[in-house]
């Protein structure tokens, strides 16, 4: 559900020419409450987080924190959480790759092959979001359980050893990430495949292009905006997720979110938690920028 509207956002700026009434102040009045809310509770917190990331790490919640511009917090935080930070990007990247491999055929099938079943299949894509994120992730604990049918089968055919398991392994975490964020990838991809002019494919066929060739030359390039938007909408929340790592993994699969969670809520070490959180945002921002630049599309935002 979330994403359906997310894609609706894509063609921004399609406003109709404004009515030429004299009330120039009206749009500002309409915008004021909502904008104020976002400024106070989105940008305000961001600035505070930035400030907190430079607090004196020797302080505590009881004694208060002094602002000492301790840039060293970033060095310490990134060094201490290095493995988890790397793991977050690594897991999210693998999950995104798997997502593209299995999500593309799905989006393609719905957009070009489903006919009158299109709506029903789209509902099936977003259906996981109808139930709670945590409850459906817990269901994977049952599916991947050591006593479950899946592990039994994999043990029988020798893919897993006799005491091999899936739960509490990186496989389970990546599987969970892929599952939870797949709809975010499929929907924008579907939207751009749906807009594809089929006459181009017919023309390619008439000109003796093989199906594979017309896919590479026509379908794939024309679906790039959807693919880029979809991979970002998948990747960004996947990097920051720690529910899958906690529920399906073990401490050796912890991601950066687990570290930030414990810094703020268990160790109450705000300066390092804030520094790690901010560093994460910058890293994601850089990756997104490079990705958008390299894929040569600016139609996403």
């Amino acid at each position: 559900m979330t994403l359906m509207t997310g894609i609706g956002a894509a063609p921004a700026g399609s406003a109709r020419p404004a009515r030429k009434s004299g009330r120039r102040w009206l749009p500002y009045l309409l915008l004021l409450p909502g904008t104020l809310w976002l400024v106070v509770f989105f940008f305000g917190p961001m600035l505070t987080l930035g400030a907190a990331s430079l607090w004196d790490p020797a302080g505590s919640l009881q004694t208060g924190y002094a602002q000492t511009l301790s840039f060293g917090n970033y060095v310490d935080a990134v060094r201490d959480a290095g493995p988890q930070l790397l793991r977050s990007f690594w897991y999210a990247a693998i999950a995104t790759l798997i997502g593209v491999i299995i999500g593309y055929p799905l989006a393609y099938a719905i957009a070009l092959k489903a006919g009158r079943w299109k709506y029903l299949l789209l509902v099936a894509v977003v259906a996981p979001m109808f139930t709670s994120f945590l409850v459906r992730t817990l269901a994977w604990k049952t599916i991947l359980s050591d006593n479950g049918a899946l592990v039994g089968l994999l043990r029988d055919i020798g893919i897993l050893g006799a005491d091999g398991r899936l739960l509490a392994t990186p496989i389970a975490v990546v599987l969970g990430l892929t599952y939870n964020f797949l709809p975010f990838l499929v929907l924008p991809l579907y939207a751009s495949l749906e807009r594809l002019d089929r006459r181009l494919l017919e023309a390619a066929g008439d000109l003796y292009a093989s199906p594979a060739r017309s896919f590479v030359k026509i379908t794939l390039p024309l679906s790039m905006p959807g693919l880029v938007a979809g991979t970002l909408l998948f990747f960004i929340p996947a990097v920051g997720d720690y529910i899958n790592a906690e529920l399906l993994g073990n401490p050796n699969t912890y991601m950066v979110g687990n570290v930030i969670d414990s810094a703020f809520l268990v160790r109450l070490d705000y300066p390092h938690g804030a520094a790690l959180s901010f560093a994460l945002m910058f890293l994601i921002l850089i990756i997104v920028m490079v990705y958008l630049f390299r894929s040569g599309t600016d139609e996403v935002v």
């Binding site: 305000g44 505070t48 987080l49 929340p237 920051g240 804030a274």
Partner: peptide, 26 residues
């Protein structure tokens, strides 16, 4: 204003959650 509306959708929840906590604690 469009940027102000877009940013919260593009920011990881982790960052929004911790930043609000920093604000409330401060």
């Amino acid at each position: 204003v469009n940027v102000i509306i877009f940013l919260p959708m593009a920011t990881p929840e982790l960052v929004m959650g911790t930043s609000l906590l920093a604000l409330f604690v401060t």
